[in-house]
């Protein structure tokens, strides 16, 4: 209905005039709360990925052969019903979509807030009081989502280029031998530092994100609300410990190639390394 109060010209003009509604359920994404839902739901998906990825990578502690087997398992998901790699690619596309939505909703929501907030520059995004503002509840995690997010994105691109495409390892990169690639890459101190910083950022991001997700989805019961913070802290802690163990233990020398049965330098052909690893696995039974 027409708003006679706003028609009177009193008060500010809308910052975001109401748009024509798209068909359901796209109309939900047109609204800020809808976008928060999308951000929360994709957050859940991404969080699931991060947890699974971390747990899967723990295979590295079982040695190069087991790690290679795990990598192969991912590629052959779906057994013989679908061509090799199909399911993995479907999962990857799903992940990319979730990332895309997560990032788009975050960015567009921040833009709405920025327009509503005086002196909110593109950097930082929060509104500015000339005399400063003294925060009470907002914590480091909540106020740095805007920073930890891009850090994670950049890290993600680096991580893929590093360990999936082998941009920096060059000739040293062995397709199908993640143990080798990982220990090669992380044994360099600067690389290890990048991984540590990025994973701290990830944990901080998850700490606020996981709690925030409950609020955004309206999962709230005053009786159990304390558990929401505990779950968020637990998840963040779990991921922090798991993911940091890789660079730290590599640097500590726990993950290295010294005692490897199928030493990479013994082979000329990548393929032979994999065969060796497979044979090793069979021997171990």
């Amino acid at each position: 209905m027409a708003q006679t109060l706003s028609r009177s010209g009193r008060g500010p003009q809308p910052l975001r005039p109401r748009k024509k509604q798209l068909p359901f359920p796209l109309n939900i994404y047109q609204t800020a709360i809808g976008r928060k839902w999308v951000m929360a739901l994709t957050g859940i998906g991404l969080l699931g990925f991060v947890v699974a990825h971390m747990i899967g990578n723990l295979h590295v502690y079982e040695g190069p052969a087991r790690m290679a087997e795990y990598a192969e398992t991912l590629r052959t998901l779906g057994g013989g019903l679908v061509p090799r790699g199909t399911i993995l690619w479907i999962l990857r596309l799903g992940l990319i979509a979730m990332f895309g939505l997560h990032i788009h909703s975050a960015y567009s929501l921040k833009e709405i807030s920025r327009k509503a907030s005086p002196k909110a520059g593109f950097v930082g995004g929060a509104k500015q009081y000339s005399g400063g503002q003294d925060f009470i509840a907002a914590n480091f995690a909540s106020r740095t989502m805007r920073w930890t997010g891009p850090i994670i994105l950049l890290y993600l691109l680096y991580h893929i280029a590093d360990l999936t495409w082998g941009w920096w390892l060059g000739d040293d990169f062995v397709h199908g031998d993640p143990y080798h690639n990982l220990s090669e890459s992380l044994s360099s101190l600067p690389v290890a530092i990048i991984y540590i910083v990025a994973n701290v950022a990830l944990a901080v991001h998850i700490f606020h994100g996981a709690w925030s997700m409950f609020q955004s989805l309206g999962i709230n019961n005053p009786k159990y609300n304390k558990a929401r913070v505990a779950i968020a802290a637990g998840l963040a802690g779990l991921i922090l410990v798991g993911n940091l163990s890789f660079p730290i233990l590599t640097q500590a020398g726990l993950i290295d190639e010294d005692n490897r049965e199928c030493a990479v330098e013994d082979f000329d052909d990548e393929h032979d390394i994999l065969i060796c690893l497979e044979e090793q696995l069979e021997e171990e039974g």
Binding site: I112, R114, A137, S142, S216
Partner: peptide
């Protein structure tokens, strides 16, 4: 939503 920013659950 026509007039205000969006919630990021700071709790301020």
């Amino acid at each position: 939503e026509m007039y205000f920013g969006t919630c990021t659950n700071h709790g301020e």
